[in-house]
């Protein structure tokens, strides 16, 4: 068709310019203005309130961390028959209140059972593509907002340790999916009453269930999940079922940020509800 085109099999359609071979080394910044760029001293000329969003993220994450740390170390008021707080599930030691999960070992009594399982939700959230964006921007200011200069002299991104470790995110997802199943199991157990008889339902049952659903949707909408169910394929037409699954996950993936915040909030609210029940501050609203 066109002159110079390698017709037939295999050949590249256009030529590729030579490039350096092998891995390239990062640059070394000195924080000086770049040569030959337009001389503009201002760090940004944005006139909108670009700092609001990073500020809100900092506030939300700091508040959550304080609350979660307090509750995880508190080692009390996390169980009120038949409900267990998501911070403490699965509760795997003999010291656990209630018996929602097989007691696997006897830990030292001063270690809160929440601490054994905390790593799983923490793992997926810390390496999540959305939360990475959120904390790189708002805590590390890299960049604080688009077209606002970051304060660092050097930048290597996720090319070296420890941030290279973000690449294990899919394993954090696998672990989180196991926790998701356990939280559904907790929600099913919440259909029993205080005596262990089935056929109960209270507001707490609904809350546990909604929390399990939101956390599950958060996991399923994950970018790694999207890749695993179908994103890695190049020929969807040969894998119709995985293509369908990929389409569904892609739809959820578009809402991943919203699900990340919604599920974070629901964990807190669920925990607060169980806390209020466990401290006898309120009574569970019974439907039947």
């Amino acid at each position: 068709m066109h002159a110079g085109r390698a017709v037939g099999s295999g050949g590249a359609v256009t030529a590729t310019a030579p490039r350096r071979t092998g891995a390239v080394a990062p640059g070394h910044g000195n924080g000086m203005p770049a040569p030959r760029r337009a001389a503009i001293a201002a760090r940004t000329l944005r006139t909108d309130r670009w700092w609001i969003q990073p500020l809100l993220v900092v506030l939300a994450l700091v508040l959550f961390t304080i609350y979660a740390t307090f509750r995880a170390f508190q080692n009390a008021h996390y169980f009120s028959e038949p409900y267990i707080s998501p911070f403490y599930s699965p509760c795997i030691t003999t010291a656990c209140e209630g018996s929602s999960f097989p007691e696997l070992f006897t830990g030292p009594s001063w270690i809160s059972p929440a601490l054994y399982v905390l790593i799983f939700p923490l793992g997926i959230r810390a390496t999540c593509y959305y939360y990475r964006k959120a904390y790189y921007r708002s805590f590390w200011l890299s960049p604080p907002a688009c077209a606002v200069a970051e304060p660092h002299k050097r930048y290597t991104g996720e090319t070296r340790l420890p941030l290279l470790g973000q690449n294990i995110h899919r394993y954090a997802l696998y672990a989180a999916l196991v926790i998701n199943v356990i939280l559904f199991y907790d929600a099913v157990l919440a259909f029993r009453d205080e005596t262990g008889a089935w056929g109960h339902m209270g507001l707490g049952t609904l809350i546990l269930l909604a929390n399990a659903v939101l956390l599950f949707l958060y996991s399923v909408s994950c970018h790694s999940c999207r890749h695993i169910v179908g994103g890695r394929l190049n020929n969807f037409s040969r894998h119709p079922l995985r293509y369908k699954a990929w389409m569904q996950v892609s739809r959820l993936n578009g809402r991943h940020m919203q699900l990340a915040w919604a599920s974070l909030l629901s964990v807190v609210l669920t925990d607060v509800y169980v806390f209020l029940l466990a401290t006898d501050t309120i009574n569970d609203l019974r439907f039947f």
């Binding site: 070394h28 910044g29 770049a34």
Partner: peptide, 15 residues
């Protein structure tokens, strides 16, 4: 233009 990797770090243009 907006990508901070090169916007704020001219030296990264090579890599």
């Amino acid at each position: 233009d907006t990508c901070h990797v090169i916007r704020d770090h001219e030296e990264n243009k090579a890599v």
